[in-house]
């Protein structure tokens, strides 16, 4: 589904991603872990099409298409979804209007008719149930005045509405208490099918107790320095990131 080959990204003259390769197949869940500042969010944003920095090397192929010159809105309509680490507040734009516009853009892209108001509201109700967000939240402006937890749930709610093929969840667990974490993880799991894939970006192992990855990658200083199965996450939890850092540094001394 997604192939990243030797991706290098520079921001303001500084190399942030230093040659990343990753292969995500249909139905897989990949976890990307790593200490703060290692480039996880940068990778997520680049995949979603955010224009910042410069891609100096590499190739990203998604569903057989070159992702590089695709606009963010087209990536979304092709099935890529980014769950933001810091969802943006948009005063004056209602959640309903936002989601209806987005959903209908997706439908138009697939050659389907716009959804009727009543069908749309029904769908919203259904999906809200999935992440247990209060019904009042969707009549408010996008993320405005939402608590940290509400914002994160709102991301998963949007994911549920748009049913992406590839979801990239950037630190969806940060700032959530254990109950909220369960609800969010549960939502993600219910949306999982054999046809779609997920990249879970997280700093802590905790989330991976609920969303069980097929692969775990450790990103450090702009590179994937270790890959393994879910036991790698537990090992990291045990030994901490210092273990990785030492490992990497000793390698580079050799």
């Amino acid at each position: 589904m997604l192939q990243i080959e030797n991706l290098k990204v520079e921001i303001e003259g500084k190399e942030i991603l230093k040659g990343i390769s990753l292969n995500v197949k249909k139905g897989e869940i990949h976890a990307i872990m790593g200490p703060n500042g290692s480039g996880k969010s940068t990778l997520a944003a680049v995949l979603a099409g955010k224009e910042f920095g410069e891609i100096t090397n590499g190739k990203i192929t998604y569903m057989g298409k070159d992702l590089m010159d695709m606009e963010p809105e087209d990536r979304s309509k092709e099935g890529i979804f980014l769950g933001f680490q810091y969802p943006i507040e948009i005063p004056g734009v209602s959640m309903v209007n936002f989601m209806r516009t987005a959903l209908n853009e997706h439908r138009k892209y697939r050659g389907e008719e716009a959804m009727s108001s009543s069908d749309f509201l029904k769908l919203m109700r259904e999906k809200k149930e999935l992440v247990k967000i209060e019904s009042g939240l969707t009549s408010r402006s996008v993320n405005e005045g939402f608590s940290g937890g509400e914002k994160k749930r709102n991301e998963i709610f949007q994911m549920a509405m748009l049913e992406p093929r590839l979801a990239i969840l950037d630190e969806t667990d940060s700032g959530l208490d254990i109950d909220a974490l369960r609800i969010v993880a549960n939502g993600v799991n219910q949306l999982k099918t054999a046809e779609n894939s997920t990249i879970v970006i997280t700093h802590y192992q905790r989330l991976l107790d609920y969303i069980v990855p097929d692969f775990v990658h450790v990103l450090y200083d702009g590179k994937i320095v270790k890959s393994g199965d879910k036991s790698l996450a537990l090992e990291l939890e045990d030994k901490g990131y210092d273990w990785i850092k030492k490992d990497v540094e000793s390698v580079s001394y050799e």
Binding site: F84, F98, Y109
Partner: peptide, 18 residues
């Protein structure tokens, strides 16, 4: 905010309007 809207599939013209 523009990027947020676009990342949900909303085109540039519509995102600006919103």
């Amino acid at each position: 905010a523009m990027f947020y809207l676009k990342s949900r599939g909303i085109n540039k013209t519509e995102a600006r309007l919103m």
